[in-house]
Structures are given as structure tokens and as C-alpha cells.
Design a binder for these strands. Structure first.
Lengths: 235, 235
DNA sequence: TAAAAAATGGCATGTTCATGTGATACCGCC
DNA sequence: GGCGGTATCACATGAACATGCCATTTTTTA
């Protein structure tokens, strides 16, 4: 089991107040992994690496969440996907709810593409295959520190596919600059009068623009224009 | 300049009809790169690698498109981002228009994140930093062959961010079944009257439903309801 | 430089909408 | 049995909208 006390002393002060010289840019990393050996070995690797620090390693999401509730804010959490109780995937959202700045790096045995992908969708910053060499672990953490998301090419393709599927063909209806502007305000729900006020124009002018937008988009109502604008990302 | 004849003989038959023993799963790769030395050196690497074959290397997109027009279908095209004339990014769409199955691997000198990202959005399958070691080149191509998208962790994060930004939280406004039905028809641009006809109900009833929808979504107009429905995927 | 496109403004009219204020009826549930 | 939610229907009214038809000015483009 995890050797974590039910309640933690404020952990983020531990680095600064420890015996070691103050390290302003030491990365605080937690590990959530139910395999005790693996967890402790990773923790050891991290604590041996200059610039990294692993003050907390636990076996369940619930324990880690409790620690977050006590006010600790790690930069990174290594989170096993296949945990007993609350799974790693389910743990991502509550972690981010408690500490939005914390980046979550998933740990997974096999490159289970669906699970990894789901984790990334849930907000994970990347993943690490275990067992990973110490070098690979540190490399992944460095990737994250530099604002990257370590993942295999296969997973990257999956994310990319999902992304480009959402990217709509982008038709061009020949809207002018002004018309796009008015359309944007239409989508925001403004009335003709409000749009006129907002753009310092006559209400009649806006009316004309709206007509032209309708003609170009082949619609006959605000709803139609708004729907088309949002669906085809014209705004 | 590129040493490519204006018109090509059907290139995809060259492998099978060559002196070498037939290789059913040889990958055909083209290179589009204006640096002659680099291009030829990559071509050399590819042709030296068992299972890979580079029958065409050219200096401009236009030349490659002409070759595609002649009916050649490479599995992969290595495409420089910074080409004179038509840029690599602009070349992706016409390439896919001519040969949808061809995967495009971008070549770029510096990890110009915006350009690379744009290329991926335009349909590229990954990218390769140049100069790349022969091993790295072959590795990237193998990634693609296995259905992956080689990219750095930084770029992966960018794609991931863009993707998760599109994934909306999915709030629940407590809409009833009927209300969702009406909302859907609203999004489709129907008037109250039409909706009433469509559902065999009184116009008054639809009016009431619309009011209730407005109240639950906290909006005061059709446009507002439509915008919220589309933006938050309520439909 | 002439034509085309965009931006601005106006008047008029019938239509549709948003909202206030009702009513009746059904259904699940504590 | 009563209470809350849903679904249905009704009348009324001022506001907003869609559309027809028109004119002037500026900017862009051929």
C-alpha cells in the first residue's frame, strides 16, 4: 500500500525548507501507480535527477486527490491508467479541478491506443510506456516542461485525424469584411439596433448588410445564418 | 534544377518491371525539395534502403503535381515547406486532390511551429527536420507506413490543445425530450409555424416550448438558442 | 479611367417573434 | 393525495425582423 499519511503537511514548502540548498526551479512530481516496486523505482530515478523532486508517491487516485485537497500543487503527476478504484482516466478531471496548472503524464503498460487517446482527450499532457528507462522517463518529463506532449507517432496520428475531421472544408461564400463583422455580431445574438450602435452605423445599413449576408449564405433568417456560420466556422 | 522529364512514363510500374526481383511491398516515395544536394542525398538514402524506392525527385510543387497528373501514385511524398513558387503548405491540398491515398511528410529546416502546424491542418501526415540522419529519415517513413504521424512533442501538444479546445464540456441544461426536439428544428431554421406543422401541434404549444428552452438556456432569441445549441453541442 | 464591388443610408409593409398571463391534463413520486 | 414537472392550447401586444425597391459615396479592380 501507499506509505502516505492520511493528511499531509503543506508539501510544496518542503523543497525550499529542506536541508538542500533552495532550488527555485526544481520540478515537483508525484507518482500515482499501484505497482509498489515500479512506483518506488521511478521515484528513486526522479529524486536522483538534478532539477527533479518526487515528494509523494501513492497507489491510488483517491490518495493523490486527498493530498491535492490539502493544498499541495505538483507541477507534474505521473498517473497510471489502470488503477484499482478510480481509474487514471477518471482521475484526470478531478486533478485538474483541484490544480489546473498540474500536468498529467499517463503511465501505461501496453500502448493501448483507445485508452491513451481517451486520456489525452480528458486532459492528459502525454504518456509514458512502462517499464521505461530512466532516460526515457526524464526525457518525457523534459518534454512536458518545455510545453510538449510526449506521445508515439501512432497516437499523434489519431489525435491529428480526430482534429482534422472536425476541421470543416471551409467554403467561401464571398462575404466582405464588413459582412463578416456583422455576421459575427449576429452570432453573438445582437439585434440590428445593437449592431448599429456597436459599429456606429445606421440601422438601415446593418439591415442591408444582413440582407446581403442572407443572399450570400442562401438563408432567410438569423437562425439560418447563425447556424451556417457556426457549423462551417465562418466566424 | 530538377532532372525530371516534362512528362513521365507511368512510374508505378517501374518497380515491378525493373531488373530487381519483384517487390510487392516496396514503398514508392517522391521528394519535392529545392535544395539539389539535399534532395539527391535523401533520394540516395531511400534508394539504398531495402523496401524503399524513390523514383522521382523534383524541385517544385508544380513539377510534382504534373507528375501526379500523369497518373503516378506514390505512397509518400517528402515535401519541403519553404519552396519557391507554390509553397509546400499550399501544395498539400492539390496533391491530395490528385492522389488521396498519398501521405505527405513535410520537410522543414527549423521547427517553425506555426508553419508545421498549418501543414498538419492542411493534411500532412507528419514532418521531418532537415538535415536528418538517414536513420531518422527511414524511421519517420516507417512511422508513416505503420499509420503514425511523426512529430515533436511540442507540435503534438499544439495539435492536442487545438483538439481539446474543440471538445466542449457538455453542460446539461435539463432540456426535456420535446424541448430538444424543438431546439433541433430551431437550429434547422424552421419558424414556429413550420415546427408546429412538422410535429402536428399547435403553434401556441411550440411557442411555449420555445419560451421554456429560452429560460433553460438563459437566452432571449432564436439566434442565441441556436448559437448555444451548436457551440455546446446540445443538438 | 471606367466598371465593379463594397459600404452607407432611406422608406414601407407584412411577417414573425418574444413575452405576459392565463388554462387543462397527464405522470411520477414521496 | 398533493406537488412538481412536462405537455398541451389560447389571447394579446409591442418589438424585431425579412424583404422590396431605391440612392449616394468610396474603394477596388480590370
Amino acid at each position: 500500500m501507499a506509505m502516505t499519511p492520511p493528511t499531509l503537511p503543506p508539501p510544496q514548502r518542503r523543497v525550499e525548507s529542506s536541508l538542500a540548498p533552495p532550488q527555485p526551479d526544481v520540478l515537483t512530481i508525484w507518482i500515482v501507480e499501484d505497482n509498489d516496486l515500479l512506483r518506488e523505482s521511478i521515484a528513486h530515478v526522479l529524486n536522483q535527477t538534478p532539477g527533479l523532486c518526487c515528494p509523494l508517491d501513492v497507489a491510488t487516485c483517491e490518495t493523490a486527490l486527498a493530498a491535492l485537497d490539502d493544498g499541495a500543487v505538483p507541477e507534474i503527476i505521473l498517473l497510471d491508467i489502470g488503477l484499482p478504484g478510480m481509474s487514471g482516466i477518471d482521475g484526470i478531471a478531478p486533478i485538474h479541478a483541484r490544480s489546473p496548472s498540474t500536468q498529467v503524464l499517463m503511465l501505461t503498460v501496453h500502448e493501448d491506443r483507445d485508452n491513451v487517446f481517451e486520456a489525452l482527450c480528458a486532459g492528459a499532457s502525454g504518456y509514458l510506456l512502462k517499464p521505461a528507462s530512466p532516460a526515457r522517463i526524464v526525457e518525457a518529463i523534459e518534454d512536458i516542461r518545455r510545453g510538449g506532449s510526449p506521445m508515439s507517432a501512432q497516437i499523434a496520428r489519431k489525435v491529428l485525424d480526430m482534429f482534422t475531421r472536425l476541421a470543416v472544408p471551409q467554403k467561401d461564400y464571398g462575404l466582405s469584411q464588413r459582412e463578416r463583422e456583422v455576421l459575427h455580431l449576429l452570432v453573438d445574438g445582437l439585434t440590428q439596433k445593437r449592431i448599429a450602435e456597436h459599429l456606429f452605423l445606421s440601422e438601415h445599413t446593418i439591415n442591408t448588410h444582413i440582407r446581403n449576408i442572407y443572399a450570400k449564405l442562401h438563408v432567410h433568417s438569423r437562425s439560418g445564418a447563425v447556424a451556417k456560420a457556426l457549423r462551417e466556422r465562418l466566424i
